[in-house]
Amino acid sequence: MRRGSFEHDNLIFSFLDSGGDGKPLLALHGHWMGASDFEDLAADLAPMWRVVALDQRGFGESDHTDRHALLAYVSDALALLDHLGITAPMPVIGHSFGGIVAYHMAAQHPQRVACMVIEDIGVEIEDDSAPFVTPWAGTYRLREELEAKLGPRLAPYLQKSIQRCPEGWRLNFEPDEFLRSERATNGDHWSVWLASRCPALVVGGRASRVCDSEHLKAMADKRTHTTLALLDAGHSVHVDARKEFAKACQTFMGSAQ
């Protein structure tokens, strides 16, 4: 994937674009992650699909800011599409935090979203990650010291979020800024979820510690044109069940076009 950048809302945003002649789709990452989290998915969906993945504000190589709100996240995604000249409705894949942005985007701008894949995130969000995320802040002399702080369960998923700096190793997001983003996405989103009409696929991981499968089933049951797929994976379904997730997306997006 090729990296590019653009300016919006007085911030510089970074993104990855797999290019090619495939149909474009937008991919929105979860908290702690970034656009590079979708490099494998882009390879699996090529050449039929051109994956455009945004580093959302405060994550990856995009600028940090104290301005975090759902309206801003949706505006950032639209600004990327405008930058690339993509105006036709397109599929949107959103993992976790990115899934919340995706279904808000579908509700607010239905003319831009052809269909959506919502990966392991619900519509009743009340998270407080401060107790275990706050200690991640700072710079570590050795990469292994930061990985030890993240812990053996999470460190493998955050490999692409670890960056080298002159003093050592650090995360490419600020834990305090992430917590502002977490607070911005907390709340009851049922009305937003039910407001859009485009086809949707809700994908959950059977071993997820974030989402309850019964809640995801209720999301699919209560919304029209929505189906549910549960795969043998944790919260990052596209990582734990890479091939199965890509196949589910291909089948769904092919039938939704």
Rank of each mutant, 00 (worst) to 15 (best):
T139L: 01
S196G: 07
Q159N: 12
I162N: 12
D188W: 07
S129W: 15
D221F: 08
Q159V: 15
K217G: 10
I125M: 02
V202Y: 05
L158V: 01
C115A: 11
Y157Q: 05
W136S: 06
P135V: 03
L194E: 07
S191F: 06
Y140F: 13
N186D: 13
Y140V: 10
V202L: 08
C198T: 11
P199A: 01
R141C: 09
L142G: 14
E147T: 07
G187R: 02
L179S: 04
P156R: 03
E167C: 11
H189L: 06
R197G: 13
L150Y: 04
M116W: 06
A114W: 02
E167G: 13
L142P: 14
A155C: 08
E119C: 06
A184V: 11
E144Q: 14
G168E: 14
V113N: 01
H189W: 07
A155D: 09
G151Q: 00
R143W: 13
R180N: 10
S213Y: 03
S208H: 01
A200E: 03
A155F: 09
R183Y: 14
S213M: 10
E214Y: 01
E147S: 08
L150S: 03
Q163H: 15
V192M: 09
V123M: 08
H215Q: 01
D221W: 08
A184S: 10
G204P: 00
E174F: 12
K160N: 05
S213E: 11
T139M: 03
P175Y: 03
Q163C: 15
K217S: 13
L201D: 01
D212I: 00
A130F: 06
P152W: 02
T139D: 04
E167D: 15
L171I: 10
G204V: 02
Q111M: 08
A207D: 07
D176V: 14
D212E: 00
Y140H: 10
L171K: 12
Q159R: 13
G151M: 00
G168Y: 13
W190K: 09
V202I: 11
R143T: 11
Q111G: 10
N172H: 15
C115Y: 09
R206T: 01
P175W: 04
E126I: 06
K149D: 07
S208Q: 00
R112F: 07
R141W: 11
R112D: 03
A200C: 10
F132A: 05
S208K: 01
A195S: 10
F178Q: 11
P199C: 02
T134W: 09
C211K: 01
G138D: 05
G187N: 02
F173L: 00
P199I: 01
E119V: 09
A218D: 10
A137Y: 11
R153P: 02
R197S: 14
V203I: 09
P199W: 00
L150G: 03
T185N: 12
A218R: 08
H215F: 00
L194S: 06
D127L: 14
P110H: 00
P156E: 02
D127K: 12
